[in-house]
Design a protein around this nucleic acid. Structure first.
Length: 747
DNA sequence: CCCTTACGTGTTTTT
DNA sequence: CACGTAAGGG
């Protein structure tokens, strides 16, 4: 224990600056940390947790750390673990959503039914709304998407959506669809993501005992990425920490530490408001504000670039990031012909990088605005045999085969779950199609208090089915025989697969390759269940569903160690850092996205995306855009993004590589990478024209005589090299011209 | 009921 | 392009 204390305090003294220490050392109080990109945000939170446990002997279980994404939670968990000794208990670290789910599932104040509620994702939401629109013949008036974004909007605005201004102003159709949607969920015993937050908030506000119990247990709260919280999350935090949330009452726990950066707020489309950070001091009295400006991640030119871009935003608190890592020539901007050529350029850069530095441990990432851009890049990476890994994209739990299996699980736990039922009643196909589904739903609407088995029993007893359908329905019910929510998920899944002949259904309906990969995915799902069960003998299907329902990626997905580059969106990259970052597709209509071009606030958010992208890089930044890109199968002419013009002047002079052969790229990147040696000459400007080392091919000398086909004979006045070419300034008889050396002959 | 075909329509980001 | 929806034939 003493040992642990000493080593932590050494770390504290040696690796944390004064400002960071201010956020970490106090045991009690309210802290708001404005932390610029790379300023050690996560380090502050994790060290603070460690300090509370190690130096202040706080019980780890009275600490709650909330994040915004699963990835951040995972990362934080790991780093906290590293600080502490093996057998120390760990605090809860998770997303707002997962903590709320846990509160609701475990609370005796909330659950009223014997069956656990199911969580529905966006896909399910869509299905409910489409169903409602169809049922009420609103097809021509409204799209599911509009309704969905309306619902999400009002749910993010307040804990009581029906009183929100957006709701009151909305058209009747929207209001009615909202009510019908809520009703459908309640009949099906389902909650959506937003409900997790809203219901949790109400739990605190409506049950003083619940709140008291919570505040007795949880004494320290830490929140990461505060700029990305929405109204409800802010409210939840208030009710967790304050005596009377509605009146900004007294602080009721020991400490609260929120960390965020307005410049990295990129989730406003999901209801996140920076105002949460701005209002923080009003809502929490005696807040101590701390600003972290020293960046430990990137070399100075990269920060200059980031600052130069972000300063074009009007709505921000000015921060000035600085770094003590000086360097030179670390950013290149290239113009490519097409998305595929962009991929080629990136691939060739990566090739040179590994062959020159001979270092396979550098981390690299290719960032883009939206997933569709990855394809062209992937094609190139494959052709150059560069092992890559896509983060995000088609999420594991979004795959139809996984959703099918999960729907069976959901139905076991929640037999009122109509969405799960509709998903699988005819999957695999068993002759119970749309017509049957409609009849079934009509019956269910009349008796919503019955579960799917009881409705089926009615059908069977009333004898209204043809022989075939009757048999099929009976055998459907048999799938669920003696499967209980107490069983292990791995066993249940295996049973379902065999009882439904799911694998042969896949074989019959999909190409061999697709079918195989779907089977593999299901096996992965079983593996992940086994992984959980290994650690916890009482881990039933119930816990399994709770564990995975808020995840998108597989838990123990095998980390292939030979990945050379990661591909992901800017959003997915937030919180991560890499040695080399390639920002692709910096074109009008893509970044900024065409949806945001004419709305000032959205445009600023797009700029923040660019900013997030730039600040991911530790050492080197390759920014690219294309002249043509295939979008929706159509080739479209692209213009460089306005953000290109916001780069520091010296980078605006981009390199047009749209017609380059492979070799040119090779020399270009070799040259760039090798320049690393000359980094520490600060007087040098960053332009590639002034690169110090000459290509070895050049053998020109001042005053040397040369001949040009058109201009005749002259003498060399000046020699300039860039990465690829040598330019000579020649004095001819009656003119001075700057000419590419390859057009000249020495005499 | 299910498969095929034709058409049209719209693509951001994630818990 | 690639998905989902609508219509028609087996």
């Amino acid at each position: 224990m003493e040992n642990q204390k000493n080593s932590f305090n050494n770390f504290f003294k040696d690796f944390l600056n004064q400002e960071q220490q201010k956020a970490i050392s106090p045991k009690n109080g309210v802290l708001l940390v404005h932390a610029g990109a790379g300023s050690g945000k996560t380090r502050v939170i994790t060290s603070r947790i460690a300090s509370l446990i190690i130096n202040h002997s706080v019980d780890p279980e009275s600490i709650l750390a909330l994040t915004f994404t699963n990835k951040a939670a995972k990362e934080m968990k790991e780093r906290v673990k590293n600080f502490l000794q093996e057998n120390t208990k760990l605090p809860y670290v998770g997303t707002f959503h997962s903590y709320c789910l846990r509160l609701l599932k475990s609370s005796k104040y909330f659950s009223k039914s014997n069956f656990s509620f199911s969580l529905i994702d966006e896909d399910d939401q869509n299905k409910i709304i489409k169903g409602l629109i169809q049922k009420h013949n609103l097809d021509k008036k409204i799209t599911a998407k509009q309704v969905l974004s309306f619902i999400s909007k009002i749910k993010n605005e307040t804990h009581n959506p029906e009183t929100s201004s957006a709701f009151l102003l909305a058209n009747n159709i929207f209001q009615e669809l909202y009510h019908m949607y809520e009703k459908e969920k309640s009949i099906s015993n389902c909650l959506d993501f937003d409900d997790l937050l809203i219901k949790s908030y109400r739990l605190f506000e409506e049950n003083p005992e619940f709140k008291a119990e919570f505040q007795q247990k949880i004494r320290h709260i830490l929140v990461d990425e505060y700029q990305d919280t929405n109204q409800i999350q802010h409210l939840i935090l208030k009710t967790m920490c304050l005596n009377k949330a509605s009146e900004n009452g007294d602080f009721a726990i020991d400490s609260l530490c929120a960390v965020g950066d307005e410049d990295q707020s990129i989730y406003s489309w999901r209801g996140a408001t920076v105002s949460n950070m701005l209002n923080f001091k009003k809502d929490f009295k005696n807040t101590v504000s701390i600003t972290l400006e020293q960046n430990y991640r990137s070399v100075q030119p990269i920060l200059d670039t980031a600052n130069s871009v972000i300063q074009n935003n009007k709505y921000r608190n000015i921060k000035n990031l600085w770094s003590d890592k000086q360097a030179n020539d670390r950013i290149r901007v290239i113009q490519c012909a097409s998305g595929y050529q962009e991929g080629q350029a990136i691939s060739l850069f990566l090739k040179e990088l590994t062959s020159i530095t001979n270092d396979f441990n550098t981390s690299n990432a290719i960032l883009y605005r939206s997933h569709f851009q990855s394809r062209a890049i992937e094609e190139a990476l494959i052709r150059f045999s560069i092992p890559y890994k896509i983060i995000g994209g088609i999420q594991f739990y979004d795959r139809q085969e996984i959703k099918d299996i999960i729907a069976y699980l959901r139905l076991i736990l929640n037999p009122f779950d109509r969405l799960a039922f509709l998903r699988i009643i005819n999957t695999p196909t068993r002759g119970l199609g749309p017509k049957f589904e409609e009849d079934y739903l009509n019956q269910w609407d009349e008796q919503p208090f019955l579960n799917f088995k009881e409705i089926a029993q009615n059908f069977i007893e009333n004898n209204q089915l043809t022989k075939n359908k009757l048999d099929q329905l009976k055998s459907f019910l048999e799938i669920f025989n003696d499967l209980s929510d107490q069983d292990k998920a791995s066993n249940i899944i295996t049973q379902i697969i065999s009882r439904t002949n799911y694998f042969s259904y896949l074989d019959q309906n999909f190409e061999k390759e697709d079918s195989q990969s779907k089977k593999d995915n299901i096996k992965e799902l079983i593996n992940s269940a086994i992984f959980f069960e290994k650690n916890n003998s009482s881990f039933s299907v119930k816990e399994f569903l709770e564990e995975i329902s808020l995840l998108q990626e597989l838990i123990n997905s095998n980390n292939s160690n030979n990945t050379q580059v990661y591909l992901m969106t800017f959003h997915a990259a937030k919180g991560l850092e890499f040695d080399n970052v390639m920002i692709s597709g910096v074109e009008e209509g893509i970044l900024p996205s065409s949806h945001s071009t004419y709305i000032h606030e959205s445009l600023e958010e797009e700029r923040r995306l660019m900013y997030v992208g730039i600040t991911r890089a530790r050492e080197r930044l390759l920014i690219s855009y294309t002249m043509h890109r295939t979008i929706y199968g159509q080739i479209s002419n692209q213009k460089p993004s306005r953000f290109i013009n916001e780069l520091p002047d010296i980078y605006i002079k981009k390199d047009d590589c749209s017609k380059w052969p492979y070799d040119n790229f090779k020399y270009y990147f070799q040259n760039w990478i090798n320049n690393k040696k000359y980094n520490y000459n600060f007087d040098q400007s960053y332009t590639i024209d002034s690169v110090v080392n000459k290509p070895s091919t050049s053998s020109w000398m001042i005053k040397q005589k040369v001949e040009h086909k058109v201009f005749g004979i002259g003498t060399i006045e000046k020699i300039e090299n860039n990465a690829l070419n040598t330019y000579l300034t020649i004095k001819f008889n009656n003119a001075i011209k700057k000419i590419d050396a390859k057009f000249l002959k020495s005499i």
